[in-house]
């Protein structure tokens, strides 16, 4: 293998076959992984959920992960938010000519490892190579299929007044991590992305609470954007105790310096959940037993007043609106 990706790797010829065999099959292979035109799998029972997501994060590698890991987590978590156990993924790579093969290997490795951890199989893929400058290093699109258990009905329109609002961990870490990884602010801090697959956390929650109302992953726009979306979709208000929102010290430090609100920074391994109050403690307990939700916490509740608004109670006993989501703070975070 040469050291960098060339246009020949995307030609469909020998170089492409080599790349698939030595790189993708090696890292991503499983009994369904196919070199044919389409993968063939047994039909699952029950309703299926399907989702797709493109990933263009810059830089492609960051503390806590890389674009390969991110592209699996993103689609797995989207499926999980509908209560769907992720079964199969496809992945499509667009690689810039000249991208080091060694780096591509890191991406494929992370993708394979994350898929195995998440219990999902990558069954088909595609590789394209674009000329130098036509894409920035590497872009990945994944699509996934999952199966929904009988009786599960999750939607952003299901929130009811009195529901408790839970976050599965501390907020704003992925956004802060990418911001620092770009090295534009001259700030050094040890912030790792929270990027993680969360199906096991969702499965535990569905087991603990048969009447789960809402599950959303707080990716672009962060927890704040999710809360405003739910207010609109469910026609309710939301009250958040600002002191209860978990924020890592290093994230608080960086965002404080830059004047950013952690609730509006992206998470890639943190979800927002809403359930009837009587199940809230059980849900938190179940979450804390899973690998990536040890910091789960109740942060507020759904209200029938202040419809369409997120009201924050502040540490000194004041009350204020969480500002409405604004412009994208930072492009290309996922």
């Amino acid at each position: 293998m040469s050291d960098v990706i060339t246009l020949a790797h995307g030609s469909g010829g020998r170089k492409t076959s080599e790349l698939i065999a030595n790189m993708f099959k090696k890292n991503l292979g499983n009994e369904f992984f196919t070199a044919d035109d389409a993968a063939v799998m047994p039909r699952p029972e029950g309703k299926i959920a399907m989702s797709t997501d493109g990933f263009i994060v810059s830089p492609w590698e960051f503390p806590g992960g890389n674009i390969g890991k991110l592209s699996v987590c993103g689609t797995v978590n989207d499926l999980a938010c509908m209560g769907a156990k992720p079964l199969y993924l496809t992945c499509s790579y667009v690689i810039e000519e000249g991208f080091p093969i060694e780096d591509l290997e890191k991406i494929a490795e992370a993708m394979g490892e994350t898929a195995r951890k998440a219990g999902v199989r990558i069954v088909a893929g595609d590789t394209k190579v674009a000329g130098k400058g036509q894409v920035d290093k590497v872009f990945i699109t994944t699509a996934g299929v999952g199966v929904i258990e009988e009786g599960v009905n999750l939607s952003g329109a299901n929130a009811k007044p009195g529901d408790k609002i839970i976050v599965t961990g501390d907020v704003g870490r992925h956004g802060t991590c990418i911001l620092l990884a770009r090295d534009e602010y001259g700030i050094e801090a040890d912030v790792k992305s929270d990027c993680a697959p969360l199906w096991d956390a969702v499965a535990a929650v569905l087991e603990a609470c048969p009447e789960m109302h809402v599950i959303r992953d707080a990716t672009r726009g962060g927890v704040g954007t999710v809360l405003y979306e739910i207010c609109d979709q469910s026609d309710v208000g939301i009250k958040v105790d600002s002191e209860a929102v978990p924020v890592a010290d290093e994230v608080r430090g960086v965002t404080g310096m830059l004047g950013l609100e952690p609730l509006y920074l992206a998470c890639e391994g943190t979800m927002v959940m809403m359930c009837p109050a009587e199940y809230a403690d059980k849900v938190v307990e179940a979450l804390r037993k899973t690998e990536h939700a040890k910091g789960a916490k109740i942060i507020g509740e759904v209200t029938s007043d202040n419809k369409g608004r997120v009201v924050m109670t502040t540490g000194i006993g004041g009350m204020t609106y969480l500002p409405q989501p604004g412009n994208e703070l930072l492009p290309r975070i996922c």
């Binding site: 924050m312 109670t313 502040t314 000194i316 009350m319």
Partner: peptide, 9 residues
């Protein structure tokens, strides 16, 4: 002052 909701107090 706005962020802390002080006016309301």
């Amino acid at each position: 002052i706005f962020r802390q909701g002080i006016r309301r107090i």
